[in-house]
């Protein structure tokens, strides 16, 4: 309990309190180098899909891991933004960068509405409300004119970035996705290490204490919700540009479940855990896509195993292990 207050205090005094050790920098640099070179030996579409979902999972983790709110409706933001971006580039002929921004803004707006209702309750009720409202959005997408119902928005043009760079060239598209992914991660990193993020952590640790310290907890929660929705939307819009379509699949509750799984599997509340989680889930889906064995069964079993046996997730368990601690990682309990 005292921890929560301490973090909140240091948060408001000096922002980036966490020190970054050498080990982390080396791992980060290696990861970035890998992603820069990856398209030489891995299928670019697969990599781009992976990065989109990784960003989505990180955005989701911003809410669950750092604010302690479990949203069961993040598909609404991911899939909603996919529709917005698709509509903006296809019908309004906007350039991809504005399409992406519009998608993120639309998702943020959706997040504002859904969050406004959801933050009125806590815990499991919060989860159920977000699930119900995102299902409502699903029905809206099913019936609305601009989403083209069951068909979805097809053959979305990738267009030219800034009007110059042709995104139909796979390499260009890949590096755009990578750039957006890195920017997204930097935003998240900056956000959770800002005074705002510190207050969010204090809410996660002890909400009553945060209220008694005079913080308007509801506004902070809503802020985090909108931020998370916007970044999830950025990922959704990016996915639309990569695959050149937006369909109902991305707004279903199954998608909301998938992003929870990615985060849980990788490690809730770790910055890079969701990236690994997304990588594993996307790889698994790709691997099973050719067989007729349904992914849902495996997803479900992995869910149960994660919850029962390693709730810290792969990266979380690594951080907590002896090797992880030796390398200077810390993991909160």
């Amino acid at each position: 309990m005292t921890d929560a207050i301490d973090t909140a205090k240091t948060g408001s005094a000096a922002a980036p309190a966490r020190s970054v050790g050498t080990a982390q920098i080396v791992i980060l640099a290696a990861g970035l180098l890998f992603l820069l070179l990856a398209p030489m030996f891995l299928y670019p579409i697969f990599l781009m899909k992976l990065l989109c979902f990784a960003l989505f999972a990180c955005a989701f983790n911003l809410l669950l891991g750092y604010t302690g709110l479990l949203s069961f409706g993040h598909a609404a933001f991911f899939g909603g933004a996919a529709y917005f971006t698709a509509h903006a580039v296809k019908e309004w002929h906007l350039t991809p960068e504005f399409g992406l921004l519009l998608g993120a803004a639309g998702a943020a707006f959706l997040g504002l509405i859904i969050g406004f209702f959801a933050i009125r309750r806590k815990g499991i009720y919060f989860a159920m409300i977000t699930l119900a409202l995102s299902q409502m959005f699903y029905f809206f997408c099913l019936q609305a004119e601009f989403t083209k119902g069951e068909d979805g928005i097809q053959s979305v043009p990738r267009g030219h970035l800034f009007g110059v760079i042709d995104l139909l060239v796979p390499t260009n598209m890949y590096y755009l996705v990578l750039a957006v992914f890195v920017i997204g991660l930097l935003i998240i990193w900056r956000f959770i290490n800002s005074p705002f993020g510190m207050i969010l952590k204090s809410i996660r640790e002890n909400e009553q204490r945060a209220i008694s310290l005079g913080y308007s907890v509801q506004y902070y929660k809503l802020g985090a919700f909108v931020m998370s929705a916007a970044l999830a939307g950025l990922a959704g819009g990016l996915k639309t540009l990569v695959f050149q379509f937006a369909t109902l699949t991305d707004v279903t509750w199954q998608m909301s479940g998938e992003v929870i799984l990615m985060t849980l599997l990788g490690g809730i509340g770790t910055l890079i855990g969701p990236i690994f989680g997304a990588g594993l889930v996307v790889t698994l889906q790709n691997y099973l896509a050719t067989s007729d064995f349904p992914v849902t069964i495996i997803t479900g079993v992995v869910f149960m195993v994660c919850v029962l046996l390693f709730r810290r997730g792969l990266i979380g368990e690594f951080y907590a292990s002896r090797l992880g601690r030796k390398l200077g990682f810390e993991h909160r309990q």
Binding site: T296, I297, T299, G300, V302, F303, M304, V307
Partner: peptide, 11 residues
């Protein structure tokens, strides 16, 4: 956990 259970049964 029960979400995972539901997915498994349904799948």
């Amino acid at each position: 956990f029960t979400f995972g259970l539901a997915l498994t049964i349904e799948g």
